[in-house]
Write a protein that binds this DNA or RNA. Structure first.
Length: 398
RNA sequence: GGGCGGAUGUCCGAGUGGUUAAAGGAGACGGGCUGUAAACCCGUUGGCUAUGCCUACGCAGGUUCGAAUCCUGCUCCGCCCA
């Protein structure tokens, strides 16, 4: 696509086209005009807490928008929340979220940065860590905290709901938006991006900047990408995500599991184009899956992933490549099936027995009878063990 | 500081002395159908060296033939008053 972005007004329209909110009204255009007048790039900020090691597709929606800013010549400031991660955000119901170690955070920060490069242009990127400025004397923290009120913080939708539901809210959580807002002060953000769930925090950032005598940022919020269940937002904790570093076959297979209803959102948010109205849903989904694999791997991998998928699920043949599983026979040369399944596929032996009873275990494509549980190793050697539809291993003697 | 209420399996949520490994729902998993979509149907859903054994209802003790259920202490959480 070749957007028309020659004037600030046109550029603002282009950037905001698939955003949910662009606030304040006209603010983005004014920022762009200002940048053009002063012949400087805008500083577009995004903060992330490296609490989990991988970036998933939901996150790339916002990254993709940042990339558009870069393509227009602006600078992206990626803030790695190393300090905030260390403090441990007790968001949501799980107040038990473990506080990560320094090494863990550093490792996550590195992979995050690396993965973000799959979308961002490294030449127009500035990466900062908020430990640089958040490690501040209490006196300074108090100054920051004075910049807003409890009532203002409690406006946030999430807090209102949790108060109503009598769910706990830690004081630290109340402080979180302030820390995030201070990041904007520290990096002189012109624009801050986030998902719609970030709207409150992004807006509060404006207040904080203003309290520090800085120009207020404008904000752009992007729709939340539904996860592969098509229901809830894509999130690690729901297990409905696709990580950008996942193997090609995984990205492909998970994409095909997406409910049809969610395909439109994925097209809009991930491909940046609408779902063709008269497309056959199956073909559209396969095309989507191929393009996502191609983006995070390459064309060849996309092709191979599709072939592997068809082989397993359409032709019901085992994949060409699969891990080996070592057969461990006892003294009588027999192999205990539950133990074999447990060690090969990481299920418990109780679960393995249940799956056997349910006909979920196959040997060379034929369901394995639940009895007997001990089989001669010679009967298994060299054959393909299958659990459910998609877990395979080739059995090997010694 | 005072008063009241609460803590149950992956999650939500029943259960107030006896087939309770713990109703129901969600999720997940297996099978069927299919486009590994959805919908729908059937089944499973603590662990193990497995016709038995072990562990489980916030933690630690106690009462009892027997406790998630009763008692004591503790921890954590919510609400109200101050």
């Amino acid at each position: 696509m070749a957007p028309e972005t020659s004037s600030p007004a046109a550029a603002a329209r282009w950037l905001a086209r698939n955003a949910v909110d662009s606030l304040p009204a006209g603010g983005l255009q004014r920022k762009l005009e200002e940048a053009a007048r002063e012949r400087r790039p805008l500083r577009a900020k995004l903060g992330i807490d490296p609490t989990a090691p991988d970036i998933h597709l939901g996150f790339t929606v916002v990254l993709g928008k940042l990339r558009e800013f870069q393509d227009l010549g602006h600078t992206v400031v990626l803030i790695i929340g190393d300090y905030t991660a260390r403090v441990g955000d007790p968001s949501g119901r799980s107040s038990t979220r473990p506080i990560l170690s320094g090494e863990q955070i550093d490792a996550n920060a590195r992979t995050f940065q690396q993965q973000a490069m799959k979308v961002l242009d490294p030449d127009r990127l500035e990466v900062r860590r908020n430990g640089e400025w958040l490690e501040m004397p209490t006196e300074d923290l108090f100054r920051l905290v004075r910049s807003t009120t409890v009532a203002r913080i409690m406006e946030r939708d999430d807090f209102v709901k949790r108060t109503a539901a009598r769910a706990p809210i830690s004081l630290l959580e109340l402080l979180y938006p302030l820390l995030q807002g201070y990041d904007s002060v520290a990096v002189d953000a012109d624009v801050e991006l986030g998902g719609t769930d970030q709207k409150f925090n992004l807006l509060l950032g404006r207040d904080i900047q203003s309290a520090y005598g800085k120009p207020e940022q404008v904000i752009l919020t992007m729709p939340i990408l539904p996860g592969i269940d098509g229901e809830r937002k894509m999130s690690k904790s729901f297990g409905n995500y696709i990580g950008v570093t996942e193997p090609a076959e995984e990205i492909y297979g998970k994409t095909l599991r997406l409910p049809d209803e969610a395909m439109g959102s994925w097209y809009d948010l991930l491909l940046g184009e609408p779902l063709p109205p008269d497309a056959n849903p199956r073909d559209a989904k396969r095309a989507l899956a191929r393009r996502l694999v191609a983006r995070f791997h390459d064309e060849r991998a996309a092709e191979a992933a599709e072939q592997a998928f068809d082989r397993i699920h359409r032709e019901h043949r085992p994949p060409e490549e699969m891990p080996d599983a070592r057969l461990e026979a006892n003294g009588d040369g027999a192999v205990h099936l539950p133990a074999l399944l447990a060690s090969t596929f990481g299920v418990s032996s109780s679960e393995a027995r249940r799956l056997l009873k349910q006909g979920g275990v196959k040997l060379d494509g034929t369901p394995l009878a639940a009895e007997p549980l001990d089989r001669p190793a010679s009967e298994l050697d060299g054959r393909v063990l299958q659990l459910g539809k998609r877990r395979f291993a080739r059995l090997r003697g010694d």
